[in-house]
Every structure is written in structure tokens, then in C-alpha cells.
């Protein structure tokens, strides 16, 4: 799926929704960027670590019936794009929910869950999923 180096570099984002913020223009990047394409040179040295807000609402969704091998055991399941309360868009699964209750505008929060079991060695990949928030 990706190189070992890339896998480790992206773990903080996947476990803790860590992104970056350009303090020059205020844009938040998730997954992280160490360079602001809007500010270019003006943004160099002004990129800070940023914890993405873990709550937000469903911007759009789908119930996936035709699943990839890694999700075959859980199909059908809900996928969502969530707009977090600080305006960042994130794609992921919505779990612990009745599928016919999923709707645009629904309040959700991010939790850490098992994403998949990789390869013959069965290494478990963890990362964020969303659950309904009260």
C-alpha cells in the first residue's frame, strides 16, 4: 500500500488527526503539508503543527456494498466526508451507527479503530474512524 517510511511519517496524522497550519494565511492542512502552496516563499518557516478538531458534521456519505478485501467482513458499511468544526475535510468510515440513520449534517467525532490487517503477517493498521456524537 505504501513505503515503510511513508507509513511511519503518516502515523501521527492517522492516529491523532495531526496536521499543520500555515500561520501566514491561516490555512490548515490535513494530511500535513510542510509547505504552503498558497503562500509559497512567504509561508516558509511559518508552518506549525496543528491538532485537527475531532468533532464535526457529515458533509456527504455513502453506504458501500461492493467492498474491497480489507472491508469484506464489515460490508455494508458507511463512508463519510466530515467537515470538522475547524473547517477541515476528512474522508473515513462512520461506525457504530444504524446505516439508515446516516445523513448529511449529522454530528460525529473521530475515534481510533482498527483499519485493516495487512499482508500475510497480519500486521494490524490502526487509524481514525468516526462515530455519532451526541
Amino acid at each position: 500500500m505504501s513505503s515503510v517510511a511513508r507509513e511511519w511519517r503518516e502515523v501521527p496524522g492517522r492516529y491523532n488527526l495531526k496536521g499543520t497550519k500555515c500561520t501566514n494565511c491561516g490555512t490548515i492542512y490535513f494530511p500535513r503539508r510542510d509547505f504552503c502552496p498558497k503562500c509559497r516563499r512567504a509561508g516558509i518557516g511559518k508552518i506549525e503543527e496543528y491538532d485537527i478538531c475531532r468533532t464535526g458534521e457529515v458533509y456527504t456519505f455513502s453506504i458501500v456494498h461492493d467492498a474491497p478485501a480489507m472491508c469484506d467482513m464489515i460490508k455494508p458499511y458507511a463512508v463519510v466526508m466530515v467537515k470538522t468544526d475547524d473547517g477541515v475535510m476528512i474522508a473515513g468510515q462512520l461506525v457504530d451507527v444504524e446505516l439508515d440513520k446516516v445523513a448529511i449534517g449529522m454530528r460525529v467525532r473521530a475515534v481510533m479503530r482498527k483499519l485493516s490487517t495487512d499482508g500475510d503477517a497480519g500486521v494490524i493498521r490502526y487509524g481514525y474512524k468516526f462515530v455519532p456524537a451526541e
Binding site: M1, S2, V64, D66, V79, G92, Q93, L115, S116, K129
Partner: peptide, 12 residues
């Protein structure tokens, strides 16, 4: 990583 790796399929 951030779409397919999250179980978000191409059709999804």
C-alpha cells in the same frame, strides 16, 4: 493512504 486506506472505495 487517506481515501482507499480508510476503506473509502473508488465507487464510494
Amino acid at each position: 493512504e487517506w481515501e482507499a486506506g480508510m476503506g473509502v472505495t473508488f465507487a464510494g
